[in-house]
Design a protein around this nucleic acid. Structure first.
Lengths: 292, 292
DNA sequence: GTTCCGCATGAATCGATAG
DNA sequence: ACTATCGATTCATGCGGAA
């Protein structure tokens, strides 16, 4: 079966209206945070963040498969010495829209942004909010449980000497992580805490989250040939991982350069390129990269 | 100077009214979660949790020193497949009361509850919400600094011979300056993620959090002879740690047995016991354990 | 070919300065 | 007064060049 990767250039709120109902199995995205990335996305003011996001989440609710899942990566910033409340307000409003707030995973960032302040430590975690349409949804726990062993083992292999030591470093907590507990385990049940480093030094661009993050959720919530959507594609980490894992991928981004970059990233791994017009817009047909 | 430990038996909402304004430097507590365990604290229904807690947080706001801190350990339960929203609603309401929501620390539990569910993984984290009265508050960051990763040390070791010489010879050069900055760095500041194990089996009682947790916050937000309050004392972890660290401790609990247990725990470590009547209640004088 | 080190770089935050 | 911008602070990570 063919695996497709489609990239749409434009405003998510509008482009999403062109997608059919119940057509996406997993939505995973990291929208621009409030007041962040001003140079690229314009920066949404914290007071207007919820109002800005709700029309988009309304469309996401429509296009999601009833057994599908929406994973939202977000973290509130500090304003005048306080954590902002717009993420909490967003959750409350999305529930009024009909979303179920199933779970909150924690992404514990190994390498967080440095800095020192008189009243605050470095922020080393972000939220991964899980929303669903129904109480019953697809969840392939075994897929993560088996790789969880691999996940830990491969991490241990790759991290090798230096990083075993680094992991034992007490930075980030007073209490070192006991890696040795994991070594003899073939299988481990994952929890709702993910412990990954950011890939801050990618070749051309910087991704907002490491590939391990979408990989984990794609394994957990989808199977092969399912469809995955990222309405704030950015550098395209979600799409590229989905494509590699033989899932159909759809991405939307308002920034033309990002669309170009992701296209180029996807091209080398495709074995068969087809160009086809997408019907929703006659004046500026989007390119649909289809991968065999 | 004498270190005191006072235990009050009764309802927090009422007992707190007896404490003077601005008299506590750190409040750290883990209130009963909204759940169905009606045999312990009466089981507050999730819908009424906020309404139940607000009169207490109002008193806490009053008794807290303007430069003090309130650390609230809490985690929402799952109800009908969804995470409840009462914690978020509580934060929003407490801000209306005048609290500043300064930060949210994550307690990553190394060994969380076992279990398996079809639509959910084990919950391995809890919130540690930091509230303050003012943007300026006492914070002794150096007290919780932690050894840096072996990475820096190994580099410095290897560098040491040649680069120390270089440092001496090239006085004032940028290179030498850099090295000298690194040499004194054997410690780093922690982040807002704490990673420690739960103490699963204490002798008779089960503590809601391990001693390392209050210890860390007591170091961070208080100095010796400061006063620490736990309005939901339970098995008294906060009090016992505070007492050991030479801070004055105050605890309130509605369950008489808990008060007895904590008294017995405190007794062995005191060197001088005085009984004195507390003036606020003539009919049933509370015991005040004073430790030299 | 390894291993080792220098360097750039982040979805950060505060406080001071400037308009 | 109130907002916008800037410098200072800090540390894990990967890459490229050196030993």
């Amino acid at each position: 079966m063919q695996i497709t990767a489609e990239i749409y250039h434009g405003d998510s709120k509008e482009k999403l209206k062109l997608l059919p109902n119940d057509s996406v199995d997993l939505i995973m995205t990291s929208p621009p945070y409030a007041d962040q990335r001003k140079n690229t996305y314009g920066g949404i003011h914290p007071d207007e963040y919820v109002k800005w996001f709700l029309p988009i989440s309304e469309q996401l609710l429509r296009v999601l498969n009833p057994a599908g899942t929406f994973v939202l990566n977000i973290k509130e910033k500090v304003i005048e010495g306080e954590r902002s409340t717009y993420v909490m307000e967003l959750i409350l409003e999305m529930r009024k829209q009909g979303w179920l707030w199933t779970e909150e995973f924690i992404w514990h960032k190994k390498n967080c942004y440095p800095g020192k302040w008189p009243n605050r430590f470095r922020d080393a975690w972000e939220r991964l909010l899980q929303f669903n349409k129904n109480r019953k949804f697809n969840m392939y726990q075994e897929e993560v449980m088996v790789p969880m062993g691999e996940w830990a083992n491969s991490r241990l292999k790759n991290l090798s000497e230096t990083d075993k030591i680094r992991d034992n470093s007490k930075v980030g907590s007073r209490f070192g992580k006991n890696i040795s507990n994991w070594i003899n385990r073939d299988k481990a049940y994952p929890t709702n805490v993910l412990h990954l480093a950011t890939e801050c030094n990618n070749r051309n661009h910087s991704a907002v989250f490491p590939e391990g993050l979408p990989e984990w959720f794609i394994k957990l919530f989808t199977k092969e040939n399912d469809t995955i959507l990222d309405p704030f594609m950015g550098s395209g980490t979600t799409l590229i991982v989905a494509n590699r894992m033989r899932r159909n991928a759809m991405g939307i981004d308002i920034i033309s350069d990002y669309c170009q970059i992701v296209r180029k990233q996807l091209k080398p791994i495709e074995s068969n390129l087809l160009e086809q017009k997408v019907g929703y817009e006659r004046t500026e047909p989007e390119r649909s990269i289809t991968i065999c």
